[in-house]
Amino acid sequence: MNPAADGSHFSGGFGDPGRDAARAFRVIMTVLARPGEIGELGMVSAPAPLSPAQAGLILTLCDTGTPLHLAGPADCAPVRDWVRFHTGAPLAAAGDAEFAVGTWADLKPLDRYRIGTPDYPDRSVTLFAELPGLDATDAVLTGPGIRDSARLSLPDIALLQDNAMLFPLGIDIFFTCGTALAGLPRSTRIEAEG
């Protein structure tokens, strides 16, 4: 398994790691703290099929201490090399992962992942899930981070409602679409379009 001969796995990192990662994290933190808000994360890129927003999430949050699961076509040599070179994150099966990346369709089913324990609800996975589209419509969100209610174009609402029922256990999700990014913490209550 040789890294890509064209050296593409070297490219796509932060230009100024200290400051760029800080800016990227600020976007990531803001969208998770304010479900329904859509942020822009386009300063880095990774080999296909990962989106720029997914690349930004990986570079900002993953390192040698965080097992990462590559789901579906994301589990390909160029992505593996890129992840190894930029983060050193060990690749892991879904059940051992702290982070998992892929399309929403490839990341399912959700019951493969860690949801934390009653003593340590933080020992759970966070998904970086690419969607074909992402905007502030459809499903109605309420809960921490939301003043009255917010909207987000979520897939599989029943699945996500099940996840929210697990609170304080459960899975946290960043939905991405190209450079767009939205957060869905387990604390968010979801209703189909009212």
């Binding site: 994290f25 933190m29 949050l61 981070g145 609170f167 946290d172 913490p185």
Partner: peptide, 11 residues
């Protein structure tokens, strides 16, 4: 940062 995100997800 990872800890902060968990904190925000489980207020």
């Amino acid at each position: 940062r990872r800890a902060i995100l968990k904190g925000l997800a489980v207020p």
